[in-house]
Nucleic acid binder design. Structure first.
Lengths: 131, 131
DNA sequence: CCTAGACCCTACAGCAACTGGAAGGTCAAT
DNA sequence: ATTGACCTTCCAGTTGCTGTAGGGTCTAGG
């Protein structure tokens, strides 16, 4: 199967697929006589895996670990459990940070008239010389 | 005032301050006879502003806009209001995405035994060939 | 006076995770 | 024979810094 078909199947961009190959994340696909990449079912399964893992917010390096765990019949599910637990904690921390940003910005929005006058609580807050 | 003092005052890294200068984000500080940067109160206020705006998650380009609005006595607070409203919407979208990731991962975590066996619902989910 | 250590300077390389573009080869249809 | 849609490689750019190399300057101590 050629790259654009794999791309539309997996939802990855052809560019992204080549990129994953270039950084050694996935196995090399075969090549046709004309040099075009020819993806096997196994190649495509790996790309699906990456698509999903990336959607869950795992970094490329974490994807590398996950792929290795997937490939390893001796894997301990505890290893996966830990990796994912840490990821969930990361996400939680991230959500907390975003909520705090949102909270402060929303409070400031209420105080900003949003009209033709230059006075603005947001600008004043940003310009203050303190934490 | 020299750069390291400004850095510890504003909480920005000296490298970051030079970087902001290099991309034309802030006014150029004076230089001492030895070539060292010499920051004025005005320079420092700009850096405080950037520190705050970055903490609120504004991109460098948005910071550029905000700095321009701050400097403009003719500004309309409506412009600031709109920029910040969009930012809050971005944050909201981001939070929603993260919550969805977290939800699915948490559900999978419950199904992953986290022991010595290789069976793992998370790996299975990632390996599935569907959305 | 010399030296060590803490500053400061510039300039370039690299990070994540792609994305875009240039320049060219291939293939199917008209 | 030519068009247009593919495919290839390689290199540059994105965001927002951070690290490193290679150097100059300043201050304190011996």
């Amino acid at each position: 199967m050629k790259i654009s078909e794999v791309a539309s199947k997996t939802g990855l961009d052809a560019k992204t697929i080549r990129y994953y190959e270039s950084i050694g994340l996935v196995e090399l696909p075969d090549r046709l006589d004309n040099g075009y990449r020819d993806y096997s079912e196994q190649n495509i399964r790996q790309l699906w895996f990456l698509r999903h893992a990336r959607q869950f917010g795992f970094s490329i390096d974490q994807c590398r670990e996950l792929l290795a765990l997937w490939a390893d019949p001796q894997r301990r599910s505890a290893a996966v459990h830990q990796l994912v637990t840490e990821k969930v904690q990361d996400i939680d921390r991230h959500i907390r940070e975003l909520k705090e940003m949102k909270k402060v910005l929303s409070e400031l929005l209420v105080e900003c008239p949003g009209n033709d006058s230059p006075h603005c609580a947001i600008i004043n807050k940003l310009a203050s010389d303190s934490e």
